[in-house]
Design a protein around this nucleic acid. Structure first.
Lengths: 126, 126
DNA sequence: TTTATTAATGCGACTTTGTTGCAAAATTAA
DNA sequence: TTAATTTTGCAACAAAGTCGCATTAATAAA
């Protein structure tokens, strides 16, 4: 299955890139000047995610946020996403924290995925 | 608003205590011998949460899991929940990891809440 | 013990998130 | 330009979680 270059994807990718923070489907919807179908947005985002173009965080609101991968080191195109995200309770912004975290797992446990999110107030809102 | 001792609450609390892991609404529902209304379960759990009796994790499936607080240190009844949870992708079990994590926040950032979840395979399933 | 107060439950309706099937539109290759 | 197949839009759907409101049940008062 070969990917195709479509307008929808370009628009969404642009918004993600220029935003610099992690966006929910809803935030994207409102950033888009023209209406785009909800299902399409989700499909584009998940495609990006599968291709390793963005990463995904699930907030403590249970909502998925997608962020363009800028500073991720990608050895053999595998992302290192072991970092935390920070969600501001006031302005709603979701951003990546730089520090990579190593979590010590008990013996026999195998890490597959990582979802770390801190809520609080960012430097502009505190 | 004074709390009352009800059967529903006792049952749910028992299940949470004896389970030892973090349970979703659905898991609780199936553990209960008698049917209990969905809304009631949620209300009981959120009450427990507000009272600091349990803590809440949101999985990367966007679902809330509630766990009875056993080993939490509670200085002045404030819980320290800065630990990770581990969710097994095979058996579905969600458990608390012991290590307390300190995340270095950038200057001006204020931590309010913490949600850390690792997915993978537990020692019984790996 | 009986009654009055009010918190908790059950039911229903609802909102929101996210997914999926299928026909129409758009992209790429031939 | 045509053919092949990926994407999109629409609709329908499932599941999680919340809320209003009448009824039930737990506590306090008489």
């Amino acid at each position: 299955m070969k990917r195709r270059r479509t307008q929808s994807q370009a628009k969404i990718l642009n918004i993600l890139k220029s935003s610099g923070s992690a966006l929910s489907h809803e935030m994207l919807q409102s950033e888009l000047e023209a209406e785009m179908d909800r299902a399409t947005i989700y499909r584009v985002l998940n495609r990006f995610y599968d291709d390793g173009l963005v990463h995904k965080v699930v907030g403590d609101d249970g909502i998925q946020y997608f962020a363009y991968c800028a500073g991720c080191d990608k050895p053999n195109n595998k992302h290192n996403h072991n970092h935390f995200h920070f969600k501001c309770l006031k302005c709603g912004n979701v951003e990546c924290l730089q520090d990579k975290i190593q979590i010590p797992l008990p013996k026999g446990y195998v890490l597959k995925d990582f979802n770390g999110l801190i809520s609080g107030y960012c430097n502009r809102c505190s």
